[in-house]
Amino acid sequence: MSEEQTDRLAQRLATVRERLDRGMDRRSFLRTLISGGYAAGMAAWLGVDDFLAADDGEVPVVTALVRDDPDDPWSIRERTRTVPAKWYAAVETAFDVNQRLADIAFTGYLGSAVVPGDHESGTAAVSVGVSGNGHSVTEMVGEFAEGIDLNEETIIDVDDIQNGPEHREPQLVDALPNGQVPSGVACETPTSMATLGPALYHPDGERRFFVTAEHAFMDDHDAMGSTLTLPRQEEEAIELGTVAHYHPTEDIAAVEPSGRVEPASRINTPAQPRVRGQFTRFGLADLVARDAELEKVGALTGHTTGKIQGVDAVTCFTEDFCRRGQIRWGGEMDLTDGDSGSVSYHRDPEGEDDDVLIAGFNNARTWWPGQSYVWGVGAYRLTEQHGYHF
């Protein structure tokens, strides 16, 4: 196929996709395919089988990556569900508006997040944080934000407000069943303490890693090769391994196990929930539409729950670059120094009672008046950017 033919085909596919997003019914969809001369293989590329299985006014979306076999992290597959087409179109448009805001990065822009409405409303909004001397958001992006509410909030100088954390005793690991370390317990870098996340997997070579926050290695300009250890209640600390990969923008450090103990897909609560997979971007939006809460277990604050306040967020508060693919949830009291590296999660709606899906990886909290939430990178972003999955 020539480059010109490829471009024409891409344009035709985009037109059909846009009409699907607006809620085209199944008969109209079929007529469009037939009149456009689409081959059966191209129809399959568009997800026609899923589309035809849905009721009129609904479209299928991928909401999660889930293991077929709970004990096999490489049996990961996509899970789909149907959602109202009007809601899907609104959320997809809000995602696009949010990304354009980040691309423009106008003076005073500090971040933004998509806030889906419930399914019945068929709406979505974008919350935008600006400094006091920033431009009007509506003036900047009004031409491509039609139909999307833009909620502008002025944020004062975040650099001068941070308060010191309340002193708490860290949660140290007690037992190591089967030589595996669960998520939610304290771990130590050469310079500080953090929280250990659940096992992080990469399909390249079927590798598994311990994982925690990259900023816990803050005194190392290059975290590569730094050691991560596991403090114990009454026994000598265990070396977990050394940093094999680190990603400052997403704020994660992947640690190659040294061999004595292994990372576990379990969360350190009395019920020891099992990680079965992770939510996609639309899976998180669907949780917001259902008014669902996330949970987390940190080494300092322990187990907390909270509402999701925004998805696919952009955060430009702390560095000279912006972090994308973020989740905002809960309140500022749900995280403190030492909790970074924990994960947010929600019960798997189609799994067993103790199965959970990971939402994101907790990195920081607000510390300025007027806003209160935890932020961190979405699990889907780690998959998109680096291939990892939980």
Rank of each mutant, 00 (worst) to 15 (best):
residue 60 P to W: 12
residue 64 A to D: 10
residue 87 W to A: 04
residue 70 P to K: 04
residue 37 G to Q: 09
residue 37 G to M: 08
residue 44 A to S: 15
residue 56 D to W: 02
residue 38 Y to N: 04
residue 54 A to I: 05
residue 77 R to L: 00
residue 74 W to A: 02
residue 56 D to V: 03
residue 70 P to L: 06
residue 83 V to S: 02
residue 87 W to V: 01
residue 77 R to P: 00
residue 56 D to S: 05
residue 51 F to K: 08
residue 34 I to N: 11
residue 53 A to L: 12
residue 67 R to E: 11
residue 81 R to M: 14
residue 47 G to C: 09
residue 80 T to F: 14
residue 55 D to I: 01
residue 86 K to W: 03
residue 65 L to D: 04
residue 39 A to Q: 11
residue 35 S to M: 10
residue 48 V to S: 13
residue 83 V to D: 00
residue 64 A to T: 05
residue 57 G to W: 11
residue 43 A to F: 03
residue 57 G to Y: 05
residue 55 D to Y: 01
residue 54 A to K: 07
residue 77 R to A: 05
residue 79 R to M: 07
residue 37 G to N: 13
residue 77 R to I: 03
residue 75 S to T: 07
residue 62 V to T: 13
residue 73 P to C: 08
residue 54 A to D: 11
residue 50 D to T: 10
residue 50 D to K: 14
residue 52 L to P: 11
residue 47 G to P: 10
residue 37 G to T: 06
residue 41 G to H: 06
residue 71 D to E: 15
residue 85 A to I: 09
residue 59 V to Y: 02
residue 48 V to H: 09
residue 84 P to G: 01
residue 72 D to K: 09
residue 87 W to I: 07
residue 48 V to F: 10
residue 53 A to K: 14
residue 51 F to Y: 15
residue 39 A to R: 12
residue 34 I to D: 14
residue 67 R to G: 05
residue 55 D to V: 02
residue 42 M to E: 13
residue 62 V to P: 00
residue 82 T to W: 02
residue 80 T to G: 00
residue 89 A to H: 14
residue 79 R to Q: 11
residue 51 F to R: 13
residue 46 L to P: 02
residue 88 Y to A: 12
residue 58 E to D: 04
residue 67 R to Y: 05
residue 74 W to M: 00
residue 64 A to S: 14
residue 76 I to Y: 03
residue 74 W to T: 04
residue 52 L to M: 15
residue 51 F to M: 10
residue 34 I to C: 10
residue 87 W to K: 06
residue 84 P to T: 06
residue 44 A to H: 10
residue 49 D to H: 09
residue 80 T to L: 13
residue 40 A to R: 11
residue 41 G to A: 13
residue 52 L to N: 10
residue 46 L to R: 08
residue 44 A to M: 06
residue 76 I to A: 04
residue 67 R to Q: 11
residue 55 D to H: 08
residue 62 V to R: 15
residue 86 K to T: 13
residue 82 T to E: 01
residue 75 S to Y: 00
residue 81 R to P: 00
residue 66 V to C: 07
residue 37 G to H: 08
residue 79 R to P: 00
residue 50 D to P: 03
residue 60 P to L: 12
residue 57 G to Q: 04
residue 73 P to W: 07
residue 61 V to M: 09
residue 60 P to Y: 13
residue 46 L to N: 05
residue 44 A to E: 14
residue 64 A to F: 07
residue 68 D to Q: 15
residue 73 P to M: 14
residue 42 M to W: 01
residue 40 A to W: 06
residue 64 A to Q: 07
residue 85 A to H: 03
residue 40 A to S: 09
residue 54 A to W: 01
residue 52 L to G: 12
residue 52 L to D: 08
residue 52 L to I: 12
residue 65 L to E: 10
residue 82 T to V: 13
residue 65 L to H: 11
residue 45 W to Y: 14
residue 71 D to N: 15
residue 43 A to T: 00
residue 85 A to G: 01
residue 68 D to N: 14
residue 81 R to F: 12
residue 79 R to G: 00
residue 62 V to L: 05
residue 57 G to P: 06
residue 79 R to K: 13
residue 42 M to I: 07
residue 89 A to K: 01
residue 45 W to R: 15
